[in-house]
């Protein structure tokens, strides 16, 4: 954790982050159950909302618990390049096989 060891969160901050993660998970589950009770427009917003909540949780764990935010940039590059490569590759595959519509 070179270059920023003293910036790491304290245990109390880790607990606060965990509470945020728990609230985001509860929001995801609530969205899942609310989907049936809303109109078509509301339903069309559920999937993007779930993806955004999941991305937020993903970011919080990687940045704060894995300390990527405090690490050298090289590690972030390795990690994000793997994630972007995987997302890009599989989105193209899913689109090519007709499972998702990109455009």
């Amino acid at each position: 954790m070179a270059g920023g060891a003293h910036h790491h969160p304290q245990p109390r901050q880790y607990v606060s982050i965990a509470i945020v993660l728990a609230v985001l998970t509860a929001a995801e589950v609530a969205l899942f159950y609310l989907e049936d009770g809303v109109d078509a427009i509301g339903q069309s917003l559920t999937v993007p909302a779930l993806l955004i909540l999941s991305a937020l949780k993903f970011y919080l764990v990687v940045a704060m618990f894995m300390h990527l935010r405090f690490e050298k940039r090289l590690l972030s590059r390795f990690f994000t390049s793997g994630a972007i490569l995987a997302c890009g590759l599989y989105l193209i595959t899913l689109a090519a096989l007709g499972a998702v519509v990109l455009f």
């Binding site: 995801e28 589950v29 969205l31 779930l50 993806l51 999941s54 993903f58 764990v61 990687v62």
Partner: peptide
């Protein structure tokens, strides 16, 4: 954990 965050949404909730 982060892989499960993705699986939980993509497989179970959506």
């Amino acid at each position: 954990d982060i892989i499960w965050i993705v699986i939980f949404v993509l497989v179970y909730l959506i």
